[in-house]
């Protein structure tokens, strides 16, 4: 049950971390909160020779909000800090809810959003609300920085668009446009503690009663968090009615590709996609009309 042996580095700057990561090649692994990494190391699924702790890098810390630029969540900001941040609660309630309901108190005090995204579990809970709100992630390597849309980030279970030598420095969420709103809904066997069996996030932008734009993101029902693009395009430019969202929810079920596993059967997951998509759209609408 002990951890395998490794060398540990705690760089103080991003540059030092990038150098260490490049020098150590595939034998190096980054550590943020460790709630995924250390579990994998204990189970023998991960045996890095060098572990690079990111917690000591001051530039990666903190949550910054600005009504022009929006929200920037540093890579080492804890889930609990995100969930209780006043700006996140006010302007990004779907994210505050997702980060504050997942896992348990201790894991939220240790884990990070960046770790959750980079770990790239199909059920990663911060992915749906962030994708729905149009988030981007900032990546850095020794050559420079780049930004990519979160919906282009996930490539498969545990696989992302990040290349070796890259570090995620921040998660960037645009300032919500007027008359837009987002929501997050999940089901799991034991309330928050258990990883979500299905989770759904919705974001809508209204023009009067017309659905100007919408994003519907499903988690834990495909190899990666996925957008229900068919349901989205069905709703765009349509007048908001109960029938519209019910049909969109049914369309989202068609697009989902769940498997059966210990947490739920594929059949149950499909049924929950319908229920949660409907609820997520309802709440996103409620928030949009008040915004």
């Amino acid at each position: 049950m002990r951890l395998p042996k490794f060398e540990y580095f705690e760089p103080k700057t991003l540059e030092a971390a990038l150098n260490l990561l490049t020098q150590n090649g595939n034998n190096a692994h980054l550590l943020a909160g460790g709630t995924d990494v250390l579990v994998k190391m204990r189970n023998g699924r991960l045996k890095p020779e060098a572990v690079i702790g990111l917690q000591g890098i001051e530039d990666l810390n903190g949550i910054h909000f600005d009504s022009g630029k929006g929200l920037a969540i540093g890579a080492t900001a804890k889930l609990a800090e995100v969930a209780s941040n006043p700006d996140v609660l006010k302007h990004y309630p779907a994210l505050a809810f997702a980060a504050g309901v997942m896992a348990n108190v201790q894991v939220r005090n240790m884990g990070t959003i960046a770790g959750n995204l980079c770990n790239a579990a199909p059920s990663a809970e911060n992915a749906p609300p962030l994708m729905a709100m149009g988030a981007e992630v900032a990546l850095a390597n020794l050559q420079g920085d780049r930004r990519i849309a979160l919906h282009q980030f996930f490539r498969g279970p545990g696989l992302t668009a990040m290349e070796h030598g890259e570090i995620m420095t921040a998660i960037l969420v645009p300032f919500p446009v007027p008359k837009s709103g987002a929501s997050y809904k999940r089901v799991s066997a034991r309330c928050g503690v258990d990883i979500a069996a299905v989770c759904v996030s919705a974001w809508v932008a209204l023009d009067g009663e017309v659905c100007k734009d919408v994003r519907i993101v499903l988690g834990a029902v495909a190899p990666t968090p996925m957008r229900a693009v068919g349901a989205e395009s069905f709703m765009r430019e349509q007048t908001w009615t109960q029938e519209l969202i019910e049909t969109a929810a049914a369309q989202a079920v068609q697009e989902s590709k769940p498997i059966s596993d210990v947490r739920a059967s594929a059949d149950y997951r499909k049924k929950m996609v319908a229920v949660l998509t409907l609820r997520a759209l309802e709440q996103a609408y409620e928030r949009a009309i008040k915004n």
Binding site: Y8, E10, L31, G34, T35, L38, V39, G53, Q55, A80, V105, Q106, V107, N109, M110
Partner: peptide, 20 residues
Amino acid sequence: TVMVDGRTVSSCLTLAVSVN
């Protein structure tokens, strides 16, 4: 469960070096 700087953490998932 123990507290590190006033927040609870799982000591089984916390590296000793990280409490420096």
